[in-house]
Every structure is written in structure tokens, then in C-alpha cells.
Nucleic acid binder design. Sequence first.
DNA 1: TTGAACATGGCAAACGTTTGCCTAAACTGT
DNA 2: ACAGTTTAGGCAAACGTTTGCCATGTTCAA
Lengths: 342, 342
Amino acid sequence: MEWWVSDRRREPGQISLADIAAEAGVSVSTVSRIANGDLGRASASTVAKVQRLIAERGYRPNPVGRSLRGGESRLVAMLAPNLDNPAMAAIAASTEAALRAAGYVMVLCDTHDRPDLQDEYLRAMRSRFAEGFILVSAVASAELEASVKRGEPVVFVNRRNPYGDPYGGGAFVGIDNRKAGADAADYLLDCGVRAPAVIHPAELSSTIRERVEGFIDRLREKRPDMTVRRAEGAGANHLDCGYAAALSLVAAGGWPDGVLCPSDLMAYGLFRAAGERGGRIPDDCRPVGIDDNDLNAWIAPWLSSVKIPYRAFGEQVVACLLALRAGTLDGEVLLGHELVRR
Amino acid sequence: MEWWVSDRRREPGQISLADIAAEAGVSVSTVSRIANGDLGRASASTVAKVQRLIAERGYRPNPVGRSLRGGESRLVAMLAPNLDNPAMAAIAASTEAALRAAGYVMVLCDTHDRPDLQDEYLRAMRSRFAEGFILVSAVASAELEASVKRGEPVVFVNRRNPYGDPYGGGAFVGIDNRKAGADAADYLLDCGVRAPAVIHPAELSSTIRERVEGFIDRLREKRPDMTVRRAEGAGANHLDCGYAAALSLVAAGGWPDGVLCPSDLMAYGLFRAAGERGGRIPDDCRPVGIDDNDLNAWIAPWLSSVKIPYRAFGEQVVACLLALRAGTLDGEVLLGHELVRR
DNA sequence: TTGAACATGGCAAACGTTTGCCTAAACTGT
DNA sequence: ACAGTTTAGGCAAACGTTTGCCATGTTCAA
């Protein structure tokens, strides 16, 4: 054990209630009450003296002692599938800011989309008395089911609660994915596309499925005779998936004149495939993405995309969490989206 | 106070030493010792019984109780300036993985490059008994100075310890920025560039300054008669800076045939400016970046860049941290970089 | 037979906080 | 003057853990 752990009390940084109490000549209880704003239980002079000392010595209540006592920990855990994805980073950043504004500290855990890691973090955070959980694109897992069953405050982002059915769905922040897909379809039709296609990962998450379905349904509705080609690709991430799917698409029947990429990263994969296979983007093949990564405006002028307001997610997530804790949850929050033409 | 906080003991998820002790008919101390691997202090039968119960009930020591006692918290705080930057996200992701492998939990805090927020997080994490701090691109601040002075385990990433001088520099993980700049210069010369330029943010961080200096020094060394144009741009982030700097560059004297962008984001800003002002990239104006953002391979085929192995940072950072805690720090770690031609 | 060594394990303090309950003293009304 | 109430504040338990020290009981050697 190192000195800064074992002897930390000798350091001036960490003063406890007991230090203040000793110096003020009162009991720990009195200091605690005054520090917590319960001013009616001590004489005005005591209150003044203690408050002065608190300010002077810079006392700040120790969150660990508080947590242990069973009170609040001011800790909220966010479990996200991978920080590399710019969309996740945007959600994490905005949520962090909103939580800080609400007086919480956010712990960010990277689950790599693995149920076992998700469970491990869920356990670790629970035993640190996290007061809430934010699950971005959650996967089904045993501990998650336990959390939901126990009624712990969990907010789901992007993907809905996999165990929501019997318990009323739970808190959710996201967008209307079917409508986003439909908007993308409208855009391609508007551009005069006649032979559209859609690419998607080999295993479909609910989010991606909804986007693809919304896209196809809208096309069928507006152009009943139009056929929509479809290709899937495997890969560790959406970049690889998009690349593989695009290659398989062009191998099967050449370049379509428009293609839905249900995430921007897949569009990037398509772009690379086009570069290698001589497809001209967007002239010959017009992609439309969903996400609208912030970098698009800078380096992907060829990509129109449905802008998802990830930067606005944080505020909504925190509002949901607070409502959940107060017992006044009002269901799911769907934020608006808007197609950005480039 | 909500039920899941106040009555959490009724839930099966949280069993304490006391629960096990009661069921085994031994004292809490005995269970604690056995749980911590001190098997010599109890009879074989007791050990077996307690171990069975621990496994059966799934007992896991409560980190909060441990922290309070003054032992380990297994908590490490990473303070990063902004998660939006893909380089930061890559560092965060790899560090998180390495810390998890070492049995730690990482708390990620977004300081927005503000000294006051950095201080707030430093305090908050200290009072949660964080066992170490990782400061990515740290700024100077009062609490940071206090931490360094007290000898708390701090690893600096990207930017060196601003208070390192009197205390021996401290732990640092990064690259040789001057050499990275020099490599970029070699590349441009190799491409036959004759009128190079460099753009950079209005206020120079030490990192950026070193890159720019390395670039200019190498050019002077190899081509003493060559003049290097220089433009700076202001903005909230490197994208805006790069854009503004590029505009000012071209306004002052047209497009250079090669330009150092000391971060990839600045190169993206330049790209956008070129798109608007009719500069042809990379044919007329060849940019060279530093970072080599992963997305470059997919959507920025026009950008050669010095690849910084951010994915490898995590392992080194954690090694540094452990060495620091063990008192065997061996100074700074400079990782290699390599220019990627596109 | 007696002392020492060892095996086994419990007690209690400590970490920092919160809070129900208790105890004085002072004050109020009659 | 006395009962009742308010004011001011302390005591101690509880949260979960770790660990130095103490207390038995057994074994062993001289």
C-alpha cells in the first residue's frame, strides 16, 4: 500500500467531518447537519462558526462515506458498445455534460457489444451503488434482465429494452427509425433514382432492421413496381460490413443508382468499395446515410444523410433518468431527425 | 430516497460478508480473510465451507466498503479534453480495455479543455479514492499542481506534465512530435513540393508547436533557401481552425503546393476550404496530416498522414501507471509513428 | 508436569457519513 | 412554582470491509 493511500489523512486535501467538528468543538452530527443545510438544529453562532470552518478548510463531503451509508452516490453508469463509433462518442459527450449539470458523475464503460462484458460492468457498477444506468444499444444479458426486473433505473438509448415487453417497455431515447428509413427513400425518389438498393450488416439489430423496413415499405408504397436490391455484408464493424456488402452488391448486378446505407459508417465502406471498383459516387450511385456524422460536412460532401441529433440525446437521457427516479416516467422520447442534402 | 437504494439489502444481488458469516456460523473477520485468500488462518473444513458459500451465493466484495476502509478502490480516472475528437476516443477505448484487463475500472471525464472542469474532476475523483489519474492533453490548473506535488500517480498523455520541471517530469506517454513534423517535411519534399506552408491554431499547444517546429526545422535543414508560409486560424476546434487558417493562407498568397496540417482535423478543415475556394486536393495542394484518423483509409484517400498508434497507447499508459504505483517509474514512453502515404 | 508454541477464530476499531433518539437547559404559560 | 414545550446538540448505530490484537484450545518438548 502506498503512502498516498494509507496516509491520505495527513494530506491537506481530505478533511472530514471529524476534523471540522474537532476544530469547532462540536460533534460530528452537528457538522453533518449544518453541512447538509439543516440549519434549524443549532444556534446561530454555532452555525456561523461551522460554516466558516467548512468554507475555510474547504470541506467537501466524501462521496464514498455517503454511498456506504446508503445515501446517494451521484454516480451514473453509461454502458456503450464502442467508443470508436463517432455516434457513440457524441452521445457519451452530451450525456456527460447533462449529467454533470445535474450534479452526477458519469462512468463510461465500453462493452464492445459483448453480453458478458455488459454483465460484468452492470455488476461492478451496481456494487458501486450507481444510481442509474444508461444502456446505449444494449444487448440481451442475464444481469440486464435482473436489473429490469428489479426495477432499477435504466434508460435505453438507440435500441429498446430487450426485456421491455412484460414490464411496460421502460425508458427509451432514440429516433423513429422507420421514419428515418422512409425519409431516405423519399430523398432517393426525389433524386430520380430508379434502381435502388439497400445494404446492411449480416446480423440485423432492431435499429437497423427498422430503418431498412421503413425504407423498403416507403418505396413499395410509392412505387409498387420498383424492385429493391438488397445485399448484406459481414464484418467487425459497420465500415467493414458496408464495404463487404457493397462488393457483393456490385458483383451480383452492378452499381445501383441509389443505395440506402443504414448507418454512415456503412456508407464509408461503400465509398471505399466504389473507389476500388470504379463506381462514381455520387454521380452514378447516390448513397444516402443515416446518422449524419459531424465529419460529413467536412470531408464527405458526397453523402446526404439523415441527421440524428445525438448532441441532443444527453439532455433527454438525463431527463428520463430523473423522471424514472422520481417515479414519473412518461414513456419513450423520440427525437426528430432531418435529412441533410449534400 | 428510493427503494432500490434504501432497501437494497432485501435484494438478492448484494450479499455482504455478514450474510456469508451468519450462514456459515463464523465471524465476519474469518470470511473476510478467506475471501482474500488468507487460507492459513482457519481450519480446512471452515475454509471449505466458507468458500462453498461464497461461490454459491456469488459473494463479491463491495468496492465502496473497501475504499472507505482505505484499501483499494480499483478506480482510475481518465480526464480527456473532448470525446468528440476521434483520437481521444481511440485513446480512451484502448486505455479502458487495458485497465479492465488489469482489474481496474476507468472513469472517463470530459474536461472540455477547461482548467476549472479539470480541477472539479480531479477533486471529485480524488474524493472517490481514485488510485490513479490519466490526463490526456492536460492543461495547467491548481489541483493538478497539487496532485503532482503530492506525488499522486498521474500519467500524462499527449502533452507533458505542465508542472514537471521541478519534480522530474513525471510519467508521459506520447510520440516524438518534432520527429513527426520532420517526417511530414520529408514526405512533402519527396513529393517534389517547392512552396510549402503550414497551418496551425491561433493558440499553440506544446504538442502542436513541436510538430510545427520539427517540420520547419527539417525544411530549413534540407532546403535552406526555401521559404515556408505560415497561417494560423482561430476556432473552437481543429476543424474550424484548419478551415480559417486555410482561408487566410490562400487569401494571402494563393494555394501552396504542400501543406502541413499538424492534426488530421485541421486537414479536414483545409479540405472544406479547398472545396469552397476551388483548390484541387491533392493535385494542386498536397496536405500532410498528423494523427492518421482511422476514417482516412475509408473516406479521405487524398490525405497522407503520420500515423500515431493511439490504439497502442492504452497498454503503455497502464504499464506506466502500474510502474508509478510500484515506485519503479522508468520515465517517458515514446511510441513510434509512421507516415501513411495515400 | 509445566511451559511454550501453534492452530483457530473472534473482537473491535477504523474509514466518513447520516439520522433516529436521547438529554439537558432554557423558555413559556398559568 | 410547576408542567409543558422548544432549543441545542450529543450518542450511537448502521453501511461493508480489513486487520491488529486477544482468547481459547491443542500439541509438543523438556
